[in-house]
Design a protein around this nucleic acid. Structure first.
Ligand SMILES: [Zn+2]
Ligand SMILES: [Zn+2]
Ligand SMILES: [Zn+2]
Ligand SMILES: [Zn+2]
Lengths: 173, 173
DNA sequence: AGTGAAATGTTATACAGTAACAGATGAGCG
DNA sequence: CGCTCATCTGTTACTGTATAACATTTCACT
């Protein structure tokens, strides 16, 4: 609630130098607020997994998350990670990156659950960081075309694989 | 080489009633022609996997393909299926559906390898059939936006999950 | 305090994908 | 023809991703 204008057309932070502490704090606050408002239970396990995802802008596999949970002294089995991730994804606090079988925290946790916004993801194959942007009217037009063919659209995945600015500058590329 | 006009703006066949025998024969002919032209070896294993994929418009997991290979008396191990699928995907004769970890035959095997066309997939969660259409200018505009942010785009995935006309008509929906 | 729904802990297993190496096959060549 | 290199195939064993199922705990609400 501290940001009056939540950066409507700003470039996504993941590939930019930014105040990541603020970035994390604000995302966590948004999620806490949304949970309070919608009567969702942000339990310790879920909060911890959210923190793990927020920690970097990299996509983490469920087993990466699990490893970090264990590193925190929490003797967890796979379902622990999957259940927390399912909760976060179902409520729009995280997204699944299909191309990587991995997860990232949502960059706009304010905008309501799941279907509410139509994200597109830029996935860097160099550093595995993922920036979220809006698929916007482009995705809408593909979806409209599908509907014209009698197809009932439920979810749309747009994932762009490539190389982020930082990784283009690095030697390995 | 028998179709002068390869249905430029026609609705995708997967969800339509169509002459599937013709559909299979024409796809196979295109692939054979492309292989001859580009000096690719369409070996028996690869041809058989292509046939398996062409057989239905459903997305098949690598292990589904494997099972069908085995059903044909071919005592195959997983790498057999993966290698054939990799060949087909690398040369644009099949596509990987990220959302399902599965594969479908390409609907336009004429149009050259891999990056040549920008497909979008409609995935029915009822029957697992997948129809391929062109992502067209929509995907291009998202990709342009990404490039404007300094991101070097390599591949774009557009997958639309929903319910096909047939499955909408069925009771279970 | 009592009750039902939701969340967690735990075991075991299913499904997806690959590394590595040995053997077969096939096109090109002297 | 018979060599040779590259590609394709066969096979073992393994890593990684995801879920079923059931016992137990926690929590909101009476
Ligand atoms: Zn950040
Ligand atoms: Zn990068
Ligand atoms: Zn067909
Ligand atoms: Zn269907």
């Amino acid at each position: 609630m501290s940001d009056p204008a939540p950066d409507p057309a700003a470039p996504p932070a993941a590939f930019q130098r930014h105040d990541h502490g603020r970035c994390v704090a604000s995302a966590r606050a948004s999620v806490e607020a949304a949970c309070a408002e919608r009567g969702l239970r942000l339990t310790p396990a879920r909060a911890r997994v959210l923190e793990i995802l927020l920690d970097s802008h990299e996509a983490l596999g469920a087993y990466d998350v699990l490893e970090r949970l264990r590193a925190g002294g929490h003797a967890a089995q796979p379902p622990v990670a999957y259940r927390a991730l399912d909760f976060l994804v179902a409520n729009g606090f995280a997204h699944r990156i299909e191309k990587l079988n991995a997860f990232v925290a949502c960059a706009h946790p304010d905008e309501g659950a799941e279907t509410a916004h139509a994200p597109a993801f830029m996935i860097c194959r160099g550093c595995r960081r993922v920036a979220e942007t809006s698929a916007g009217p482009a995705a809408a037009s593909v979806a409209d075309a599908a509907r014209d063919l009698g197809f009932e659209v439920e979810r749309t995945v747009v994932e762009i694989e490539g190389v982020c600015p930082d990784c283009q500058a690095r030697p390995s590329e």
